[in-house]
Structures are given as C-alpha cells and as structure tokens.
C-alpha cells in the first residue's frame, strides 16, 4: 500500500477536525483549478454553455461565478 493511500485512510477516519479541514482544502483546490480551466476555455473561444455542460452546472451558474472576475480583468466584454 502506498504512503498516500495509507494516509488517506488515516485521515478519513473519525477525527472531525482533520477530516473537515481536508474537505475544505480540497474544495479550495478545486475552486482554483476551476477558475484556471474556465479561463483557459474562454480564452480558447468556448461558450459559457459548452463550459457549463462540461462542469455539470447551468450556463447561468458558471457565468455568474466566473463572468464577473473575467470582466474585471478585461477579458470579457
């Protein structure tokens, strides 16, 4: 068994302080990756609809979440 797997089993055990913190860390990492990938998709000319389908969310949701920051960065009209 790899160290990583072993650690995962250790940490997904019963201590809520550690387990919840791991969930939070995972969520933050996922958010960063999502922002990166959505930005890249828009830069490559993908529509909000296409991005939304890949992420499994509504077009409105993905636009609301990422459209604003891209406008601020001057990347969207």
């Amino acid at each position: 068994m790899s160290d990583g797997v072993q650690l995962a089993q250790e940490a997904s055990s019963r201590d809520p302080a550690i387990g919840l913190r791991a969930v939070r860390a995972l969520r933050e990492l996922a958010e960063r990756l999502e922002a990166l990938q959505v930005g890249n998709a828009r830069d490559q000319g993908w529509s909000w609809q296409e991005i939304a389908i890949c992420l499994g969310v509504s077009r409105q949701a993905v636009h609301k979440k990422h459209g604003g920051s891209r406008r601020i960065l001057g990347k969207e009209r």
Binding site: V5, Q6, L7, A8, E10, A17, A25
Partner: peptide, 27 residues
C-alpha cells in the same frame, strides 16, 4: 496515524491559502 493527526493539528492551523498539510492527509 494518530501522531500525524496530532502533529498536523498543532503545527498547521488552517489558513486562507491552499492547505498542503490537509491535502497531504488525503494523499
């Protein structure tokens, strides 16, 4: 495993930045 949890709990209070220690506990 128990020691690691105690150590991480003391050494790495969660912050706003990416939490490498917590992610490490998930492998």
């Amino acid at each position: 495993a128990d020691l690691r949890r105690r150590i991480v709990g003391i050494v790495d209070p969660p912050g706003d930045d990416l939490d490498s220690a917590a992610l490490a506990t998930l492998g």
